[in-house]
Design a protein around this nucleic acid. Structure first.
Length: 413
RNA sequence: CGGGGCGUGGCGCAGUUUGGUAGCGCACUUGGUUUGGGACCAAGGGGUCGCCGGUUCGAAUCCGGCCGCCCCGACCA
């Protein structure tokens, strides 16, 4: 990508309305734009990051036999009446989508009310199970107070996976598989080290659930971590757990702030009962379908990554989710730099090429640090004369001078 | 929903106390000079001061109402 053509520029002016670290950096870097409270546009740089995250999740969902689908954002109110959630949610987080021609449509805040009746149409035998489907979809939640930048929005993309089973045992087995998949997702997206499986409440779904909590001061949750077992308990249920680690019963737990980047629930028959979703078992008897659901908020994961990986100059993207692997900077060397750019593109390296003329070196460096691609490659009079290029990792200060051949090798290796 | 703060060119702000017809920085346009850490000089364009109403000869400024935004708390599938 030629930076001279990139839609959106970085800015030095920080909006007073963006007080969280993640939003400040994402707005300044030109990744996102805030439309109104809790509602963001994703610009080319930000969308590239989102797509990287989405693809990591997609790969891991496919590995646990999830099949991708896409459900509507709109839902007839009667579906929420059937699950008795309309009254609970309507006065709170549900957005209504009423118009001259529609009276009883709402915007889904989650998709149990869509997926369960959908399954009813296609699942009728134990032979159809187990089954797991997932989607990436906008969720709409009228949060009383959106905050923390992209960590709590009123509209956001969620990956939601739903699984369907003939028995509790089968759900339990699958639930563990998804737990492992989530572990891999957070490892791959860079926050694995700071992310802990956490025992939590089940909200309106079930008594308990498991969350994946990433340690960060920007988070809204407080968890009690057992370093021995590498699991935590959300403060909301710590009394139920008698203040002890649920695994080893140790009482000395560390109290920490964290952000919930994922949440998995065993729904049991909570929703299949509402819609009478049943299958015939081997004996020809009607048997309720056992369900599980598993969510990850993409913006929240992205924002959490930013909260963890930044310094006073900007974002430091983990390579797997960076908008580009390389930020190539030309200091008045566009001809040579363009050749190198083409070479890297042909080698399959993602490059943001700062080809802008009459922009000072200092500004180019400052913007590269802000945007935060893992590698910065500089071509200048100095490097051209020496027949080399300069490479530097965003994460550290030392620069290295190597040949173009060595550069390509390094970036592919 | 409670407490605090704020709303002025695209963005960040000053001006409001004490009413007199809007200013600075960034960004943008044109010309020139610059190019290893957010350049410089010169000349420009752009704002019914959140909305509605009131007071006044005159309102960004005073009064009333409404809307929106940020922070803290409550809430949070």
């Amino acid at each position: 990508m030629y930076q001279s053509k990139l839609f959106t520029k970085t800015t030095k002016n920080i909006s007073q309305e963006e007080q969280s670290r993640n939003a400040q950096l994402l707005v300044r870097g030109g990744f996102v734009d805030r439309l109104t409270a809790g509602v963001y546009s994703f610009l080319p740089l930000g969308l590239r990051v989102m797509k990287k995250i989405e693809n990591i999740i997609r790969e891991e969902m496919n590995k646990v036999d999830g099949q991708e689908i896409f459900m509507p954002a709109l839902c007839p109110r009667e579906n929420y009446d059937k699950t008795d959630r309309y009254e609970i949610l309507a006065g709170d987080i549900l957005f209504h989508a009423e118009s001259k021609h529609t009276k009883n449509l709402v915007l889904n805040q989650s998709h149990e009310e869509v997926i369960t009746p959908l399954m009813k149409k296609f699942v009728s035998s134990y032979k159809d199970l187990p089954l797991a489907v997932y989607q990436f979809q906008d969720k709409f939640r009228a949060e009383p107070r959106p905050k923390s930048g992209v960590l709590r929005g009123r509209e956001f993309i969620m990956k939601d996976l739903y699984s369907f089973h003939i028995s509790q045992d089968d759900l339990d087995i699958y639930y563990d598989k998804v737990t492992d998949a989530y572990r891999r997702i957070f490892d791959r997206s860079g926050v694995g080290k700071e992310t802990y499986l956490t025992y939590a409440s089940g909200g309106s779904f079930s008594k308990y659930s498991h969350e994946f909590q990433t340690l960060t001061e920007a988070g809204e949750d407080i968890i009690y971590l057992c370093r021995d077992c590498q699991v935590a308990v959300n403060k909301e249920i710590i009394e139920d757990q008698a203040g002890k680690c649920p695994l080893c019963a140790k009482e000395e737990l560390e109290q920490l702030k964290s952000a919930e980047v994922g949440n998995i629930f065993k729904l049991g028959t909570r929703f299949s009962d509402s819609f009478n979703l049943t299958v015939l078992n081997e004996k020809g008897e009607s048997s309720p379908v056992i369900m599980g659901c598993y969510g990850i908020g993409l913006q929240r994961l992205m924002g959490t990554i930013v909260e963890i990986f930044n310094d006073d100059k900007g974002i430091i993207w983990p390579e797997a989710v960076a908008p580009f692997k390389v930020h190539l900077i030309s200091l008045d060397q566009n001809e040579n730099a363009n050749k190198l750019y083409q070479k890297l593109i042909e080698a399959g390296v993602e490059v943001l090429f700062d080809d802008r003329e009459s922009v000072g070196a200092g500004q180019k460096f400052a913007e590269a640090d802000l945007i935060g691609c893992p590698w910065r490659v500089v071509l200048s009079q100095k490097t051209t004369t020496a027949g080399q290029v300069e490479i530097k990792s965003r994460g550290d200060e030392k620069v290295e001078y190597i040949t173009e051949e060595a550069l390509v090798k390094k970036l592919l290796g």
